[in-house]
Amino acid sequence: EATYQVMSTPVQYVPLISSIDHTFWTQLNAKKLDELKLDERPLPLNAFYTNDCKPGLPAHLTLSYDSFTNKPVDRGTPYTGTILNTNTVEEFKAKDFGGILKSAGEKIWSTFHDGSALTTPTLLNQFYCVCFADLKKYKYSYWFCYPAFVTSTANIVSRATLGESFSTEQKEKIRSLGTLGAAFLDREFNVIDDREKKLGQMEYVLMNDPSTDSEHPGWPLRNLLALVSFHLDAKRTVKVICLRENKVAGLQSADHSLYLQIELEHLSKTEMPKVVGWERNTKGKLKSKFVDLSASMDPARISESSV
């Protein structure tokens, strides 16, 4: 009785939005003042997303007080990144944003070639943050990118929900794999860990989905599908589970997760596709963002408003 929507339409993806809490900026201030000083070396960052945002919310990528620690954050699906923090606003504006994106794409492209992304699909979840922190004024200019390949090899041929497509037992099995972030599954929902057999046995592509949109999957699926296309010899339809969790009538449920059948074409191995992924600002433009925390971080401002 499932209400499958039959179609053939190119897959579109809901982009991630950086959701940086004030504790992150506090840590950046401390790190810059006490440790880095004028050092502009790129530093590793850890972020995460969850698949249980309420409907209507954007797909948040969260950075917090523990983003500078070396271990991946375990409060959701990890995204690993690099922060390029400049000393002046001029250096920030003059960064080679096209070049950053291209080299980030090359890094991901190499995981396609050496097969490491097949074994560890979350290697595809990468981001860059270019930043200028005006430490004395508690103002920050920053720009995130989530590198993704532009391909025209993926078309949705049917769309349904998890709830109407699988039995209770199957759904439980699928939900138990959510902690992986992304995985390739066989017919019985077992994770395929043998790289050689990967595509032959693959029945499902599973992704923890940060999107809350009822039609479109989230950004992390984009490189995942490009990876599958890259390793295909011929056209093939794959079943994609975009796992989402939410509470319905007091009970945790994944029934609203998207279940897509996607037709994939072969992607050329010789030439790296174009890379996109700079985040839009609040006006919807592909431009840097800005945050002013003086009202909550500046000791002078706080004493004015304290109660």
């Binding site: 579109q12 993806y13 920030f92 532009v150």
Partner: peptide, 23 residues
């Protein structure tokens, strides 16, 4: 020397990605 989201002098890149869901 300062920027806001509104200002035009912030860095910007070209915009043509057919596969992005535009909010």
């Amino acid at each position: 020397g300062e920027m806001t989201d509104d200002e035009d002098d912030g860095p910007e890149v070209e915009d043509n990605d057919p596969a992005e869901v535009r909010p």
